[in-house]
Nucleic acid binder design. Structure first.
Length: 258
DNA sequence: CAAGAGTCCTACATTACATCA
DNA sequence: GCTGATGTAATGTAGGACTCT
């Protein structure tokens, strides 16, 4: 058939990454999936697997016996959390059903440093998990698969947030740079307009440097150093202010800033 | 083949808890 | 010890892709 499950996961994330601005980290998935591409997983093999462990459902009592019970020997469940359970025996906000062993409110365990480190390492290699990887990690870390999944979800979110912040900073700087450029160009235009209005002024000037106009962006290189290092569009066109007649020259320079 | 239901996965928003200053 | 800020585990929801009937 059929798209293999891990490929499905990959295609999903990459597809959505194109529609929105996903982090490029996800591209690493290719390599990771290649690692696992050789493993089994027809739909027939997936189904029973997923049926057995539905990572999306809330941890049932069975799960807790099976996994949560061993889920946090390494984890540091806060000593306060138990007290909270005492504080809010009713479970407060609607999470009253199948919680762990009668404990109603959700407990928030802190992952140990070792667990976090392993997850981080794994995340470096692949930002999404296929079910097999998820299960392997969860076994390795003594966590529920759902916890591994959640960790990756949150990690992706953090990555994206950070990337957004970086992008934002970059855009700010870019904006500032463009503003500065705009100011410079406005000033340049003003000067040129002033020149145009009083041609007699430049007639008394010693033949200065040759003004250089980039034919691509029509920018004037204002000084010698600019000419020495003309911006890199095309071969600059040199315009001598003494060329005849003066008026066309000025007209040629009368360009709006872009 | 098309349509609809069911399943799975994801991003995203939000909540709730843990920790620290 | 209390409190607000911060980090993050966990939850809820919506939407897309796929399979099956």
């Amino acid at each position: 058939m059929l798209v293999e499950k891990e490929d499905l996961g990959l295609s999903l994330s990459l597809r959505s990454s194109s529609s929105e601005n996903r982090h490029p980290l996800q591209m690493n998935l290719m390599a990771w999936n290649d690692l696992f591409a050789s493993t089994e997983r027809s739909s027939e093999t997936i189904r029973p697997f997923l049926k057995g462990i539905d990572v999306n459902r809330k941890p049932s009592t069975a799960d807790c016996e099976d996994e949560a019970g061993i889920s946090s020997p390494n984890s540091t469940v806060s000593s306060v959390s138990g007290k909270r359970s005492e504080r809010e025996p009713s479970g407060g906000d609607g999470m009253s059903d199948d919680e762990d062993g009668g404990e109603t409110s959700r407990k928030k365990l802190r992952l140990s440093k070792e667990q976090s480190a392993v997850l981080e390492e794994s995340f470096k290699e692949h930002t999404t998990l296929n079910p097999k990887q998820k299960l392997a990690l969860s076994k390795q870390l003594n966590l529920r698969p759902r916890q591994v999944e959640v960790w990756f979800q949150n990690r992706r979110a953090r990555t994206k947030l950070k990337q957004t912040e970086v992008d934002c900073e970059l855009m700010k700087r870019c904006c500032e740079s463009l503003k500065e450029e705009n100011r410079r160009l406005q000033k340049e235009v003003q000067e040129l307009r002033a020149l145009k209005l009083s041609p007699h002024l430049y007639m008394h000037m010693t033949p200065p440097t040759t003004l250089t106009l980039c034919p691509s962006c029509e920018r004037v290189a204002a000084n010698v150093s600019d000419q020495a290092a003309p911006h890199r569009h095309h071969a600059p066109i040199s315009i001598s202010p003494w060329a005849q007649p003066a008026a066309p020259f000025i007209r040629a320079l009368d360009v709006a800033p872009h």
